[in-house]
Nucleic acid binder design. Structure first.
Lengths: 346, 346
DNA sequence: CTGAAAGCGCTTACAG
DNA sequence: CTGAAAGCGCTTACAG
């Protein structure tokens, strides 16, 4: 019951009375409007902190243009990824007096967009943050555009220029990781693709191809298998890759699939990285849990989420030169024990 | 901007006009109050669905006793566990027209309670759900009690009778898992304790002791090591356990530590489960990611969270016989490949 | 630079 | 069984 029970909660009227001004002046100070005498401002601020006043969000939402509430939409989260995202969003929101409403969504459901509509009808939000794969759900995007609801997409794959976004250069990251494997002497590098039409699957594959090309190599069809970002699909793709001789490394488009590949290697009596190097993408917590620990790419998920929140709060959704705001953050290659030189093979 | 922009949002006045009644009557129908003629109710409901009306939560929160908002407090979540919890809470809330505000908390921070106070001041909530270890943070509990804010604790360890709670019988679960190891012929079963004074550490240890006692055994000091629920602490505890000869099984108080134990076994050339059986607790996603897959105990985290939401929404916080509401859900023993008969050893 | 009035969209308490 | 009035705690226009 929050402020309803217990001590009567203090309102803007209490602050106004304590400061000897009208509620409008208190409101001005709180919202950092101009045209308040410095002295008046001080009095109000003193009263605010003396009374430990905190504006009621519901009242603000009802009366004004801001709701102090940000929605976070996600589906089928890699738990570790979503945890990072949430921490990033909430930390930034807290600093700005905002709060976060989470809404899991089933992208496969025919009424995913209707669910979002229900959310928007019930709750005024200052904006939404969409994580993969929700950020590529055209029904949801259409709805948000139609309602002119501000939103920021994190790591969108399709139509990136359609709306504000925060991302990492997936292609460059996959390029660098592949290049590192090449430096280690690997030439027969298997690749497990991510879910087609979701996530950064195509970009990561393109980065792999780029790196091979730079070495004068072409991706051999028998070295590339389709996966779906799940552990199981990684197992299955790795089985197919390892059925063919000569493979010395596997680069999976995410960690879960890389862990699947490590499992297959173990089953077949292959020691990682002596007999097979394995690399992933995402740096999920599980990457450090397996043995040997997984070489991977870290996306700054929390930072990306914080930047998305910033854009929404600042209403900074347009780019300077036209189009939508776009922010690109740095990734990091995390080289652990699951990769090694090909020369070390028996 | 939600309803602020785009088409002017429809309000209770629109519905009242369409149904030919007053807004008070619409409100009655929406809130399932009594004293509405069946025919009138039908008219209102027809207007509601024709207009696709959804009551504004901010207005309801401001005017009434309910906020249609539930807060979820957590700290240092095992990502997989928190993901299950969130899915459980949000699914139930959505069905009831509620929404979920998430607030990560740093329990170690001196102003954890102040952060919660800030949340309560800004946002009217119908109640809070506290997950471990927040559910055992006395400063936060004191604050909530002082403000008479409804809350439900999930798997509390300390002072369980202090407030409403939802839990699993940790002691019985640890008992059953230990008993299963005994059935497999193990007699030298190492135990890695959980973080002292947090989680269900003591209950799980008690279950282990119970099962040994029933077999006429006592826990040997050299078979019990302290851990802290982290992967690393599991590694360290397992190193100490395996330095002593004769061990045939390790039961870790959670999965992360069990994975640490498996890592140590791998390093030492011990094959699981042939040379060493390993069991965990929680059934985190990582339990299925390792090879061999981990035997563990599944807590129905999502169900527990859903039940907690139910209690809050129904305001069903008192037990029939006095005291607070308490719900105990069933756990499940998940026997996978990381445990096996001791007889199979070389 | 400051304030009085109106209103956001509901529910509450009170009449009838 | 139904409704008119007041009010929740703010912000928005508008005056001065």
């Amino acid at each position: 019951l929050g402020r309803a029970t217990g001590q009567a909660s203090i309102t803007i009227y209490d602050v106004a009375e304590a400061a000897g001004v009208s509620i409008k002046t208190v409101s001005r100070v709180l919202n950092r409007e101009s045209n308040v005498r410095a002295e008046t401002r001080e009095q109000v601020l003193a009263a605010v902190s003396a009374l430990n006043y905190r504006p009621n969000i519901a009242a603000r939402s009802l009366a004004g243009a801001r709701a102090y509430l940000i929605g976070l939409l996600f589906d089928n989260p890699s738990a570790g990824y979503m945890s990072d995202i949430q921490l990033g969003v909430t930390a930034r929101c807290r600093a700005q007096g905002y709060h976060v409403v989470v809404e899991p969504l089933d992208c496969a459901s025919p009424d995913a967009a209707a669910q979002v509509a229900g959310l928007l009808d019930a709750l005024k939000l200052d904006g939404l943050i969409l994580t993969p794969p929700v950020c590529d759900h055209s029904g949801v995007l259409d709805l948000l555009d139609a309602r002119r609801t501000p939103y920021v997409r994190i790591s969108p794959e399709r139509e990136p220029a359609r709306a504000p976004r925060v991302q990492v250069d997936d292609r460059a990251a996959a390029f660098q990781l592949t290049q590192r494997l090449l430096e280690l002497g690997h030439r027969e590098i298997g690749f497990i693709r991510g879910h087609p039409g979701h996530g950064a699957s195509h970009l990561r594959y393109a980065g792999y191809v780029d790196a091979l090309a730079r070495q004068g190599l072409q991706p051999a069809p028998e070295r590339v298998e389709q996966g779906y970002f799940t552990f199981r699909s990684g197992v299955e793709a790795a089985e197919r890759l390892l059925d063919r001789p000569g493979l010395t490394a596997v680069f999976a488009s995410n960690d879960d699939m890389a862990l699947g590949a490590m499992t297959v290697a173990a089953r077949r009596g292959l020691e990682v990285p002596r007999d097979l190097s394995v690399a992933g993408f995402d740096d999920t917590p599980a990457a450090r849990v397996v043995w040997p620990q997984l070489t991977t790419v870290r996306q700054p998920a929390g930072d990306m989420a914080a930047v998305a929140a910033d854009l929404l709060i600042a209403r900074d959704l347009k780019a300077a030169g036209g189009g939508f705001a776009a922010r690109e953050l740095d990734f990091a290659l995390i080289e652990r024990a699951s990769t090694g030189p090909v020369a070390a093979r028996a």
